[in-house]
């Protein structure tokens, strides 16, 4: 839920950077969700979206399923969630206990300049619970977020924290190149993922053969 004294995205990100488990994987949505996170906490285990609005949640779901032993955090916006609200239902049904959704609720399309959302005052935690995500709560302050982040990331089904946030329409300049293929390879290499070995070299399988 949005409140009157909303903290900034950076204040929540400071808590996230401080409390992030050391083996966590982080997926960030487009715009400042990625740019600011890269500026504050760049790491190979970050997967930055550049565009593809609404698809950070489902991508993080797939990642959580593929990497069940690693806690996966995804930062998504309320506008992006509304584009693919069905992903809440899928997350509720799959119920990955290693997935934490951090939903930035700022009531606007911040990444495109602050245009009004279709609806800015929804109880998104209630919506997530209705979709089958039991561990869902509205978080009003960075202090409350720090408290929530103090609990174990793994649990019974996904965790869904709605962060009441002030809009940030000023674009943050990221300190790194946002090259999508580099982002992907850096991420996969950091996780020691199996590499596909081409058939020409006797492969044809993931991890070679």
């Amino acid at each position: 839920m949005v409140n009157e004294t909303r903290a900034s995205r950076a204040e929540y990100y400071k808590v996230l950077a401080d409390k992030l488990p050391p083996n966590a994987l982080v997926v960030t949505s487009l715009g400042n969700a990625s740019y600011l996170w890269a500026a504050m906490h760049h790491a190979p285990e970050n997967f930055y979206f550049e565009d593809a609005m609404g698809l950070a949640l489902p991508l993080a779901l797939g990642l959580a399923v593929a990497q069940p032993k690693r806690p996966v955090f995804v930062v998504e916006g309320d506008g992006a969630l509304m584009m693919h609200m069905g992903s809440l239902v899928t997350i509720g049904a799959v119920a990955p206990g290693n997935l934490t959704v951090l939903l930035i609720q700022n009531g606007v399309h911040a990444a495109s300049g602050g245009q009004a959302l279709t609806s800015s005052k929804l109880d998104l935690a209630a919506l997530a619970r209705a979709a089958g995500i039991g561990r869902a709560e509205n978080v009003a302050t960075p202090q409350a977020f720090a408290s929530a982040m103090g609990t174990p990331p793994m649990g019974d089904g996904a965790r869904f924290l709605v962060l009441s946030t002030r809009p940030d329409v000023e674009v943050v300049r990221p300190p790194i190149a946002f090259d999508p293929v580099l982002t992907k390879h850096r991420f996969m290499e950091a996780l020691g993922m199996p590499r596909y070995v081409p058939t020409m070299f006797g492969g044809g399988r993931l991890g070679g053969e």
């Binding site: 593809a52 698809l55 489902p58 991508l59 779901l61 069905g86 799959v94 993922m193 993931l206």
Partner: peptide, 26 residues
């Protein structure tokens, strides 16, 4: 094989990207 039933094909595509990002053939 883990089957995930998605609600929409574009959502399914993103789930598949995440799964492959996680090192699983999808």
């Amino acid at each position: 094989i883990k089957l995930i039933r998605a609600t929409h094909e574009e959502e399914a595509l993103a789930i598949a990207c995440g799964s492959r990002l996680g090192g699983v053939r999808t």
